[in-house]
Amino acid sequence: MKENILEIKDLVVHYETDEGCVRAVNNVSFSIGKKTILGLVGETGAGKTTTALSILNLVPNPPGVIKNGSIILNGVDVLTLPENKLQEVRGKDVAMIFQDPMTALNPVMTIGEQIAESIMLHGEKDKEKALARAKEMLEHVGIAASRSGDYPHQLSGGMRQRVVIAIALACNPRLLIADEPTTALDVTIQAQILELIKELNRKFDTSMLLITHDLGVVAEVCDEVAVMYAGRIVEWGTADEVFNHTLHPYTEGLFNSLPNLRKRGEDLVPIKGMMPDPMNLPEGCAFAPRCPYAVPQCEKEVPELIKRGTHLVACRAYEDGNFKLRRNSNG
């Protein structure tokens, strides 16, 4: 049994606004093992970022409220920690990088200082030593150490994202959360950053939670994949299982809607309908209204996760052991 760095159980997060209650995360449970890269996939609004912020307990409050759940990191439930203990955990045991590198860095501090800040927040008292280590980190992410005195505005988007990664990894966290780290970058830079992430995972044994809506990125980098829809995990398994032996109808829909170079000239196949409004989630399975396999029972109860070995799926169709998606039937 692989040792788990992170275990999330029954996480429920709501945003309580004037217009209503946004049920962003609804009973999410998953875990990440040592050295594993888990891709968290889903459309915008599925609850991926909120889940990630919960791990650091950084959900903006107000209006966000963590209603229920436990997040075990290194044997401690992060959600029970007081603020000062949380600050020790953030940046050191778990680090997070965000989507837009252009605005993620403080414009009036040098990149060296910003990396060193993380180091000094977690034990290093000597500023000189921290700055030296910061320069080392810059080298690790492919930036010349001589640039540690530069300011963010002197760097391109791709380089800024590398600095962000350097800051995140400066204290050697056991878990790195990357929220759409390449979405805002050019495709060529994207490839470089992904390579960097893979390399760092190998070098430092860091586990990663990689949030993305891009299945291509997942295929490139991830060991395991979890698919989120309307605040719930609908499928979870290894990359091979999810890509080649897809179980959930939503995941099938995602793959079908990708343009296929071999099928040029054919119509694109989008998933009918839209993701439900998180302020007004339906009673039963949230995907049922759009699901080509749905039966009336689906709209009555929320399906539990059903196990097929290491592959989990939240779809009552699998109560029948013989059920197969069209995608898998055709091969």
Partner: peptide, 9 residues
Amino acid sequence: METVTAKST
């Protein structure tokens, strides 16, 4: 194209 009807206010 089907639209999902929301039982909303």
